[in-house]
């Protein structure tokens, strides 16, 4: 009996040892992430959404740009959900399911590009401010403070009306105003890592500052950056929706979840034709929710303090 227990514990020990040997930091984080049910559900929904966006042309039943006529030759506008149009048609007679699928494509890509821009700026400025300190830090952080003070929505609205509203401008504008949180986060993390002995050790081994910042400091703060970028994606989707809803973001006839909601400005639609506004609304909700769940899961998985 006890021999069995010994044997079992022995194999257990051996397994831990071999798993310890194999696991890189990423693999370990993935292990912890898998244990988080909510995050896994969020991740699956997100995967599904991304897949539909990527394979939109294959999946969508109709062309999202063209109106559909019914048997009488009239435009089939605001048709309720049916076997033909699963989610009905909108005020111009376009298939809502198709627009929803293509809209996801637009909304997600706008968010991703915007976040790539803001993360790039934020991380770079944060690294510089945190590592070099002194006046570099002072200048960057004051500029950040100023940008934080901008009322984002008004700024974005006025800028996008000045430029011609297009997907690309929306991407750039959102990216240019949302880097501040990342900068502050990265700066704080760099201040912490900069004092670590291994940074002093590589300096003592004769490595130069640029290599130290990018090769030794940056990888050590990838965890909070990843989490922040994920959560920022959710925010970017919201901003894009708001802009498009207000008509200064993605322009018709290109579908985005935000401008699909434009129809809901009419009381009639809002009250009696929920199939027009509910799908994009739910899509936004689901996306934000799943991204936030994944973000929280990532935070727990990547934070070394919660290790085991």
């Amino acid at each position: 009996m006890s021999q069995h227990a010994d044997l079992a514990s022995n194999t257990a020990v051996n397994e831990t040892i071999s798993s310890l040997k194999k696991d890189s930091i990423v693999a370990e984080a993935w292990k912890r992430f898998k244990k988080n049910r909510l995050a896994m559900v969020g991740g699956m929904i997100l995967c599904l959404l991304v897949l539909t966006a990527v394979f939109a042309p294959l999946i969508s039943p109709y062309d999202p740009y063209s109106s559909v006529k019914n048997q009488t030759g009239m435009l089939n506008v605001m048709a309720p959900p049916s076997g033909e149009h699963w989610l009905g048609t909108d005020s111009l007679g376009r298939d809502i399911l198709s627009r929803l699928i293509y809209g996801g494509r637009i909304s997600l890509s706008v968010a991703l590009v915007a976040v790539a821009i803001s993360t790039g700026i934020g991380v770079l400025l944060g690294l510089l401010a945190g590592y070099y300190g002194k006046w570099v830090d002072a200048v960057i952080m004051r500029v950040t403070d100023i940008v934080i003070c901008f009322p984002v929505l008004f700024l974005v609205i006025s800028v996008s009306t000045m430029l011609t509203p297009s997907i690309y401008n929306v991407m750039i504008i959102i990216g240019l105003v949302s880097w501040t949180t990342m900068t502050r986060l990265v700066r704080g993390e760099v201040l912490r890592i900069r004092e670590m002995e291994y940074v002093e050790a590589v300096r003592a081994l004769g490595q130069n500052n640029l290599v130290i910042v990018f090769k030794h400091v940056l990888p050590n703060i990838m965890a909070p950056i990843t989490v922040q970028a994920t959560l920022q994606t959710a925010e970017a989707i919201l901003t894009e929706s708001a802009l498009s809803f207000l008509g200064v973001g993605v322009q018709q006839p290109i579908p985005s979840w935000g401008n699909m909601l434009q129809d809901a400005t009419s009381i009639m639609v809002l009250q009696f034709k929920p199939w027009i506004w509910a799908p994009p609304g739910i899509a936004i909700l689901l996306t934000i929710l799943s991204i936030n769940l994944v973000g929280d899961g990532l935070r727990d998985a990547l934070d070394p303090k919660t290790k085991n």
């Binding site: 002995e197 291994y198 050790a201 990888p219 050590n220």
Partner: peptide, 13 residues
């Protein structure tokens, strides 16, 4: 140079 804290003197990544 070698440092006091071997636990933190190596880059974990």
């Amino acid at each position: 140079m070698i440092f006091q804290e071997p636990m933190t003197s190596l880059n974990p990544v």
